[in-house]
């Protein structure tokens, strides 16, 4: 944009500051990774600082031998997949329904829905409702409460309203019903916004921690996030877990550090894997947080 291509002091400072902050953002991920693949003995003494030492990958096999960890991985994946499918389908369908001016009491029901973004009864009343519904120690508690999300419905509704109504009208003239119009006409048009919703729901589901904390005591329903938290919290004795994974190499016997770092890495890997693909949804996604009813 400029004709002025001189490098000024400002440029040097600017590049340096950005480089430093970027390093600060990235380094913890790198540090975590090198500690999982270095000698467990060195790692537990904090001697693996900037580069991996005595590289091995046995931690990633050992870690799934920890009781409950495979189950937690399954629960985390399960809630992510099921929760995302349900939320995306419901958001798409409801966004479409609310875009129809002919719906009975649309204005009222839309307000009924949107208002829920602005109040919260509080932890205890919510907990007691979940208790009454039998959603304590129940997998459904992970996926059902999030099905209807006002934010996402606003997004879809706005998006549907921006698509040409003539498409829906001509389908209606051909005799297509609402479900057919939704499935055949509207769905293909709103795929970009549904993809955005899918990404953000999936990440939210994967990272979710509070619902397990409040609603689950059954260890079969623990998620990876919750298990990881317990490793730091001292609620789980890492010493007993360590004995469960016998190693061929004494230097790589499981330590508290190796378990913590490897489980952390297991939690972060899926995010890193999908990250490059959803970057292009960022701008749409951030609108989710600043959207207007």
């Amino acid at each position: 944009m400029g004709k002025n291509n001189r490098i000024t002091i400002f440029d040097v400072v600017n590049y340096t500051l950005f480089a430093l902050f970027t390093l600060a953002c990235f380094f913890p991920f790198y540090y975590l990774f090198i500690n999982t693949i270095s000698s467990n003995d060195l790692s537990s003494r904090g001697l693996v600082m900037f580069y991996p030492q005595e590289i091995h990958f046995s931690n990633y096999i050992q870690v799934f031998k920890i009781p409950g960890l495979s189950q937690a991985t399954l629960v985390s994946f399960g809630r992510t997949v099921i929760g995302t499918v349900l939320t995306v389908a419901a958001s798409g369908f409801l966004g479409y329904l609310f875009s129809k001016p002919t719906m009975w009491g649309r204005k009222f029901w839309y307000r009924f829905l949107i208002t829920t973004m602005y109040f919260n009864a509080g932890l205890i009343p919510w907990f007691l409702v979940m208790l009454k519904l039998g959603l304590i120690n129940n997998f459904l508690a992970y996926v059902v409460p999030g099905i209807v999300s006002p934010f996402f419905i606003i997004l879809v509704k706005t998006f549907v309203e921006s698509t040409p109504i003539s498409l829906q009208e001509s389908a209606q003239l051909e005799g297509a019903g609402n479900l057919t119009i939704f499935w055949k006409i509207v769905m293909p048009l709103i795929t970009p916004i549904l993809a955005t919703i899918a990404i953000f729901t999936a990440i939210g589901q994967w990272n979710s921690f509070q619902d397990t904390l409040f609603l689950v005591t059954d260890s079969n329903l623990f998620t990876l996030q919750f298990i990881l938290y317990r490793y730091f919290n001292g609620a789980t004795s890492l010493a007993t877990l360590m004995q469960s994974g016998a190693s061929e190499n004494l230097a790589n016997i499981q330590t508290a550090t190796s378990i913590r770092t490897t489980v952390s890495m297991v939690v972060v890997i899926p995010i890193l894997l999908v990250y490059p693909f959803f970057q292009r949804y960022f701008v749409k996604g951030i609108m989710i947080g600043a959207v207007k009813g």
Binding site: F21, T22, F232, V267, V268, Y275
Partner: peptide, 23 residues
């Protein structure tokens, strides 16, 4: 810069604590 500085937004606070603990 954009890619790497946005990444922390997508991890859970539990994981942030895990980083804090290691560092």
């Amino acid at each position: 810069v954009q890619t790497l500085t946005t990444l922390p937004n997508f991890i859970s606070w539990v994981l942030v604590y895990s980083f804090a603990f290691m560092l």
